[in-house]
Measured scan of single mutants.
Amino acid sequence: MMITLRKLPLAVAVAAGVMSAQAMAVDFHGYARSGIGWTGSGGEQQCFQTTGAQSKYRLGNECETYAELKLGQEVWKEGDKSFYFDTNVAYSVAQQNDWEATDPAFREANVQGKNLIEWLPGSTIWAGKRFYQRHDVHMIDFYYWDISGPGAGLENIDVGFGKLSLAATRSSEAGGSSSFASNNIYDYTNETANDVFDVRLAQMEINPGGTLELGVDYGRANLRDNYRLVDGASKDGWLFTAEHTQSVLKGFNKFVVQYATDSMTSQGKGLSQGSGVAFDNEKFAYNINNNGHMLRILDHGAISMGDNWDMMYVGMYQDINWDNDNGTKWWTVGIRPMYKWTPIMSTVMEIGYDNVESQRTGDKNNQYKITLAQQWQAGDSIWSRPAIRVFATYAKWDEKWGYDYTGNADNNANFGKAVPADFNGGSFGRGDSDEWTFGAQMEIWW
């Protein structure tokens, strides 16, 4: 008995050590931004985005507190085989008060198993909700290839000249389909599951310092038995992507060409959309029709120009041509140079221009935006974070068209359509004006 009692403290210590080691193995990653800002004409900070554009130049032009908190852990490992559990909870508030209630979004919860298939060394099996191989332009917060959501897949299969990845994910639309009631009355209240099937071939070395990635995505509306879509709904579509990445000037340049059809055009990033119906009456549900095509040509990157200068840049042309004439032509160009006074202090400027032409009206909206920021960051790279910055932003815009969301679809035949700025004596778009804002912001990723 005495021997047992003497061994007990040692056993407890060993158990505590094991539990401590396991606790220390938890990975904590994430992203956050928050700050305070004012508008020159009075009131809180207002942000500037061109009507019809899918993004905006973000430096000194973000008006919310946003965070993603990721917890993950390698829960099992034997040799080169392992299982990893990953989670991500995100939230966004308007940064107007101390207490701002919000419903967090559970954006990731997945398990990734590496090297589980003997004859596919280096590959990963995964299932669950996941940010899946996302491609974006940081300076405009624009995701041009992103099929994230609940799904499953097999990735990084070594095929000799590259890595092959296969995945299936889902994005549902509210009110996407109906069941038959009586007297030809349909009640569009059932969600429609939109499935996306993704095939990618990446890391193909085609020139010194250059790699090529090719991808095909097929999206479709997956209806339940005895349900139907509204007439004209976009049932399926394709997205084709080619991306060349070149190492240059201690950074990279990415050149991207994408072509999409029908349900893959509205978001243009790989998620299927077009079966959703915002109104019970299918007579007024025309606005979900996105049959047509999209072409996107994009070049972006980040480079170092000597010891003291870094720069991000982007140039993009996007043409969404829809059968219902509600598409757009959008082109944007911008730069973000950074001058480093010390390894932790810099001055950053961002200059961006957007131009969006309405397919329906032929009119154009444009905006110039310039931001000057003094910044303190954890390192001497344009990617170094955390960063604390004080900024001043000036924007000038001239908008000739907007979307008509007055009333509702039952009493407005133009609901959701592009109209000229002065349509029917109204005021659509943001008109011709300018404004400036100033404030302070922190940004961090880890």
Rank of each mutant, 00 (worst) to 15 (best):
R134C: 03
F240Y: 04
Q273R: 12
G175R: 01
D198N: 02
R130L: 11
E282G: 10
V314G: 04
R6S: 08
N190S: 10
N156K: 15
Q367K: 10
T371I: 01
G215C: 06
Q377R: 04
V93I: 01
N355T: 08
G276C: 13
P208Q: 06
I303F: 03
I206F: 12
E205D: 08
M305K: 01
M305V: 00
S179P: 03
L249M: 06
F428C: 11
A181S: 13
N156S: 13
K396E: 01
T328P: 09
Q258H: 01
T65A: 01
Q375E: 15
N355I: 11
T124P: 06
N253D: 01
A167V: 04
G210D: 01
I3F: 11
G43C: 05
V348E: 10
G426S: 01
Y259H: 07
G79R: 14
M24R: 08
I344M: 05
L214M: 05
G37C: 05
V159A: 15
N412D: 02
G426C: 13
D410N: 06
T241I: 01
R296H: 00
D141Y: 15
Q73K: 15
V314E: 07
G268R: 03
N222T: 09
G210S: 02
Y353D: 12
G379R: 13
I335V: 05
H300R: 02
A373E: 15
G334V: 07
A67T: 07
N290H: 10
K400R: 00
N190T: 10
K77R: 09
D404Y: 02
N61Y: 14
Y368C: 10
G42D: 07
I206N: 05
M19R: 01
S182T: 14
N194S: 05
G52D: 00
M264R: 09
R389L: 11
T393S: 10
W99S: 13
I303L: 08
T50P: 11
A221G: 10
G210V: 11
P9H: 09
G30A: 04
S182R: 10
R107L: 15
W445L: 15
I125L: 15
T87I: 00
A193V: 05
D380Y: 14
D325A: 05
T361P: 12
K396R: 01
L166M: 08
H29N: 02
V18L: 05
L298I: 06
D198Y: 11
G37V: 09
H293N: 05
M1K: 12
L5M: 04
M204T: 10
G402A: 11
N287S: 11
N412H: 07
T347A: 03
C47R: 12
N110I: 15
D98A: 09
A260S: 04
V111L: 15
D398G: 03
I206V: 14
N289K: 07
D27E: 08
K7N: 08
W446L: 13
D325E: 02
S263A: 12
G122C: 09
N97T: 15
T241P: 08
S20Y: 01
E118D: 15
I3N: 10
A302S: 11
A395D: 07
V14I: 02
H135N: 11
E243A: 11
G268V: 07
G251R: 14
F284I: 01
G292A: 03
T265I: 00
D236A: 05
T51P: 14
E64A: 15
G402S: 00
G113V: 11
Y218F: 13
W38G: 05
V75A: 10
D86G: 04
N287D: 10
A221V: 02
G237D: 00
G176A: 02
G416C: 11
H300P: 05
L120R: 13
C47S: 13
T50S: 14
W446G: 15
T437N: 15
Y286N: 09
S266T: 08
N190H: 07
K340M: 00
C63G: 14
A25G: 06
T169N: 15
A193T: 03
E435K: 14
G232R: 11
R220C: 01
Q133R: 10
Q133H: 08
A285V: 03
K114E: 13
G352S: 10
V196L: 05
D280G: 14
N184D: 01
Y405F: 07
N222H: 06
D262Y: 03
K250R: 05
D98G: 14
A16S: 03
N424H: 03
Q441H: 14
A392V: 01
L120M: 14
E213A: 10
P386T: 10
K269N: 11
S148F: 12
G270R: 00
R58L: 12
N355D: 01
D380E: 08
F85S: 05
Y403H: 07
T192S: 15
L239V: 07
G40A: 07
S346C: 00
S178Y: 10
W322S: 03
V257L: 03
N194I: 12
Q359P: 12
T87A: 03
E282K: 05
Q374H: 09
A13T: 08
R6L: 12
V159L: 14
M24V: 03
V199L: 14
Y84F: 15
M294K: 00
A242V: 02
D231N: 06
N366K: 08
V216D: 09
V196F: 10
S384T: 09
G153C: 11
L59P: 01
G17R: 13
G306C: 02
Q22K: 05
V390L: 08
F438V: 15
M139K: 05
N281T: 11
D307A: 06
P208L: 00
A395V: 01
K329E: 01
D262E: 02
H293R: 02
N207K: 08
F438L: 11
N355H: 11
L59H: 10
R220L: 10
W445C: 15
A152S: 14
A32E: 06
P150L: 06
N366D: 02
R389C: 01
K235E: 08
T342K: 08
T39K: 07
L372I: 11
D410Y: 09
E78K: 10
M349R: 12
T332N: 09
N190Y: 02
E62Q: 15
L116P: 09
P337T: 06
R170C: 03
D195N: 04
D136A: 08
I185F: 15
Q45E: 02
A94E: 13
F180I: 09
Q318R: 01
K7T: 10
S247N: 01
Q374R: 00
A440V: 05
D136E: 13
A13V: 04
K364E: 00
S266L: 02
A233V: 03
Q95H: 09
N253I: 03
N412Y: 02
R336C: 00
Q95E: 06
T332I: 00
D299A: 03
N321Y: 06
Q45R: 04
G35A: 08
F284L: 14
V26G: 05
G219V: 03
D422Y: 12
A440D: 00
T124N: 09
A221D: 06
E64K: 15
I288T: 14
G379C: 15
A94V: 01
L239S: 05
R385G: 11
G232V: 11
P150T: 13
S384A: 10
N183Y: 14
G276V: 08
F240I: 07
D103Y: 14
Q96E: 09
E191D: 10
G274V: 05
R389H: 00
T65N: 13
K369E: 00
E68K: 05
C63R: 13
K417N: 08
A409S: 10
W38L: 06
D86V: 06
S34Y: 05
N190D: 05
M19V: 01
N222S: 08
D217E: 02
E108K: 07
S178F: 01
D410V: 14
A421D: 12
A11V: 03
G40S: 03
D380V: 10
W397G: 10
W322R: 08
T39P: 09
G209D: 04
Y31S: 07
V333F: 05
Q54R: 01
P343S: 00
D398V: 07
G209V: 12
R107C: 09
N115D: 11
A181V: 06
S20F: 08
M345T: 04
A15E: 07
G43V: 02
D307E: 11
P104S: 11
D225N: 02
D310Y: 02
G37S: 06
A373S: 10
F83C: 08
G334D: 00
T347N: 05
S20T: 04
D404V: 04
D141N: 06
T361N: 13
D404N: 00
D432N: 13
W309C: 08
A94S: 09
G153A: 04
L229M: 03
Y188F: 14
